[in-house]
């Protein structure tokens, strides 16, 4: 009979490298609304990345600039004229700070996510594969941190690292490390459970039977198969990193406005403005944040759906007339058909 397809390779390993790249291969697999969501996510995310790269060209002023040749910037000036999106209570140009903010965001994302992937993957692999007491202790610790409000963990870490605000590099590192601590348990859990699942797969057992060493099994057989879902977690966590950093900034654990532009800090400053109806100081950095997060999440979720055969929509067969009934029926049929 049709055997359940246990491991569906992410992409044909021999297809051209370009077509195997995570996002490209997903694009080719997608249809209809799912493709729409993926494309929307891609557009927003690329806009975010490009803005960060070309911030020096795009921003009319520096992030800490308070005056130009014509003298000091006015405070709380409404959008229009020289300051397209207005100025803040401190006299910063809102547009410039929104644009420069992308750089800070991207730096924190990259540092935080890379660090947490690196540590989380190693811990997850070792813990899941070796098992025993090491595993149990790590699981209890990871679960304790995971269940705890991530913002509070980040606050505690921010206190530990910097005792509060600091310079650009210090601030970014503080935010990044705080976020890293929040994320490690997530990567740890994902990789560990994948490792445990793979450990029981016949292909790992068959390596064990022929006498492969633990290191060989972990590196050659488990690592690559366990880390297939990482691009997905990366995009989802990138958006969470932005939110956590903004939360820290909002509570006053961000980066000094003179060191870098940071959306959370700007929103904190703008909070007092709202009661007097001054909306532009808060709305624009907030929108920048929402668009970035939504872009990254759309991309991540689309990838997730496309990776999961149960959630993936498929093109209809040639003549376009639907089957008699809706619903997710017939996963078994799909399996039988595709295995034939």
């Amino acid at each position: 009979m049709s055997t359940p397809t246990t491991v569906e390779p992410a992409a044909d390993p021999r297809a051209s490298l370009f077509r195997r790249l995570p996002v490209i291969s997903h694009f080719n697999k997608s249809v209809g609304l799912q493709r729409g969501m993926l494309v929307a996510g891609l557009v927003l995310t690329s806009a975010f990345v490009l803005t960060a790269i070309f911030a020096p060209l795009l921003a009319p002023y520096g992030y800490a600039q308070l005056s130009d040749a014509d003298g000091n910037f006015p405070a709380q000036e409404a959008p229009g004229g020289k300051h397209l999106l207005g100025t803040t209570v401190g006299g910063y140009d809102v547009l410039s700070r929104v644009i420069w903010g992308t750089q800070t965001a991207i730096m924190v994302i990259v540092v935080a996510v890379l660090m947490s992937i690196f540590i989380g993957v190693i811990l997850g692999l070792v813990s899941g594969y070796i098992g025993g007491w090491l595993d149990r202790i790590l699981v209890v610790i990871a679960d304790a941190i995971y269940a705890f409000p991530s913002l509070l963990v980040a606050i505690v870490m921010a206190i530990v690292i910097s005792g509060g605000q600091s310079s650009l590099l210090g601030g970014i590192m503080a935010a990044a490390i705080s976020i890293t601590v929040v994320f490690i348990p997530q990567y740890f859990r994902v990789i560990r459970s994948e490792t445990i699942r793979l450990k029981a797969e016949p292909f790992v057992e068959s390596a064990k039977v022929v006498g492969a060493s633990n290191i060989r099994i972990m590196s050659r057989h488990i690592y690559k198969n366990a880390t297939r879902t990482l691009p997905l977690i990366f995009t989802l966590n990138a958006s969470e990193a932005i939110l956590t950093m903004a939360g820290l900034g909002f509570l006053g654990f961000g980066i000094e406005p003179s060191s870098a532009a940071e959306w959370g800090f700007d929103l904190k400053q703008a909070l007092a403005d709202t009661t007097s109806g001054i909306w532009w100081t808060g709305v624009f950095p907030g929108l920048a944040m929402v668009l970035t997060v939504v872009g990254l999440t759309l991309m991540g979720e689309s990838i997730n759906d496309l990776n999961d055969p149960r959630l993936r929509g498929r093109k209809k067969a040639a003549s376009g007339k639907g089957g008699p009934d809706s619903g997710a029926a017939g996963a078994g049929i799909q399996a039988e058909v595709s295995s034939s």
């Binding site: 209809k316 809706s326 996963a331 049929i333 039988e336 295995s339």
Partner: peptide
Amino acid sequence: ESGSGKTVTAKTILGLLPETAIS
């Protein structure tokens, strides 16, 4: 044997084919 279409035939009798199928 597998791929013979016997299960698909069975599901068609109850109209249980997924949306991706045209009959």
